[in-house]
Amino acid sequence: MLSLKVVEDFLNTLDERTFTRHGETHVPGERLTSPRALADWLAAHDLSSGDTPLRTADVEAAIALRTALRQALVVDAETEVEVASALRDYPLRLVPDASGGLRIAAASGRPWLDAVVETVAGSAARGDWARVKLCAAPDCRWAFYDTSRNGRGRWCAMEICGNRHKTRTYRERRHHGDREAGPRPSS
Results as ranks from 00 to 15, higher is better:
T13P: 07
L14I: 03
E16W: 07
E16C: 06
E16H: 02
E16T: 13
T18Y: 06
F19W: 10
F19H: 13
F19S: 08
R21L: 15
R21W: 15
H22D: 14
E24A: 15
V27T: 15
V27E: 15
P28W: 09
G29S: 10
G29K: 07
G29L: 09
R31G: 00
L32G: 10
P35R: 07
P35A: 02
R36T: 10
R36E: 15
R36Y: 01
A37H: 09
L38T: 12
A39C: 03
D40I: 03
W41I: 12
W41Y: 12
W41D: 08
W41R: 13
L42S: 10
L42M: 10
L42D: 07
A44Q: 09
H45S: 02
H45E: 00
D46V: 02
L47N: 03
S48T: 15
S48F: 08
S48V: 09
S49V: 00
S49T: 00
G50E: 11
G50C: 07
D51V: 04
D51K: 05
D51F: 00
D51T: 13
T52K: 11
P53C: 02
L54V: 04
L54C: 04
L54T: 01
R55K: 05
T56N: 07
T56E: 14
T56A: 13
A57E: 15
D58S: 06
D58R: 08
V59T: 10
V59K: 01
V59R: 02
E60A: 11
A62Q: 00
I63T: 13
I63N: 04
I63P: 00
A64K: 02
L65V: 07
L65A: 04
R66T: 14
R66Q: 12
L69Y: 04
Q71P: 00
A72I: 01
A72W: 00
L73P: 04
L73M: 03
V74N: 01
V75K: 08
E78A: 13
V81N: 00
E82K: 11
A84N: 12
S85W: 13
S85G: 08
L87E: 05
D89A: 14
Y90S: 11
P91A: 05
R93W: 06
L94I: 02
P96T: 14
D97R: 14
D97Q: 07
A98E: 15
A98C: 03
A98P: 06
S99F: 01
G100R: 02
G101P: 11
G101C: 09
L102C: 09
L102F: 13
L102Q: 14
I104H: 04
I104F: 08
I104R: 11
I104S: 04
A105C: 04
A105T: 06
A106I: 07
A106R: 02
A106E: 12
A106C: 11
A106V: 10
A107T: 07
G109K: 14
G109F: 13
G109V: 04
G109L: 12
P111W: 03
P111Y: 00
W112G: 11
W112M: 03
L113R: 05
L113H: 06
D114V: 09
D114N: 13
D114G: 11
A115S: 15
A115C: 05
V117I: 15
E118D: 09
E118A: 11
E118K: 02
E118M: 10
T119Q: 10
T119I: 07
